[in-house]
Amino acid sequence: MNTVIGKKLKVATTSLAGCFGCHMSLLDIDERLFDLIELIEFDRSPLTDIKELGSCDIGIIEGGLCNAENVHVLREFRRQCKILIAIGACAINGGLPAQRNQLSLALILQEVYHTSVGLANGLIPNDPELPLPLAKVRALHEVVNIDYFIPGCPPSADTIWKALNDILGGREPELGHGLIQYD
């Protein structure tokens, strides 16, 4: 990694309406993790199990916005992170969860809880502990300003490595053929 040697950059990551596939792909950079960890330290992240988000240089978010909690977390990341990166198809365009946008939420909830058998005794769960689903699944950039995008489902380890290199080096990520993939 070629970046200015100095204080380690604080990086937080999270998965919203995602599958953790992007996080798995991040781990797939394998031994390059050792290089990376020389430059950054993780704050809140599934990798650290730190629950509280502190002030960070970079936030990396996987997954789209499917419910109120996703929005709260995203806003918290936007407040705390200087640079926000959307990673993976779901964060960028809603991805698989957004396939439900073709149907109304009412229809979906009815189908799942009223029509189908065996769930919640035919009632739609209304516990205040549960986050309410949004009318439509949204991409991150539709709700907060996003600084960089790393597409892919998931992006390959090489793609992530190249994009992070560019971003840490203060450059607009340029992936090029083979690394820029939407699938």
Binding site: A68, S104, L105, A106, L109, Q110, I124, P125, N126, P128, L132, P133, L134, A135, K136
Partner: peptide
Amino acid sequence: ALEPARQMTGR
């Protein structure tokens, strides 16, 4: 955007 869910759950 939460209104449909509020209506369905009564919350």
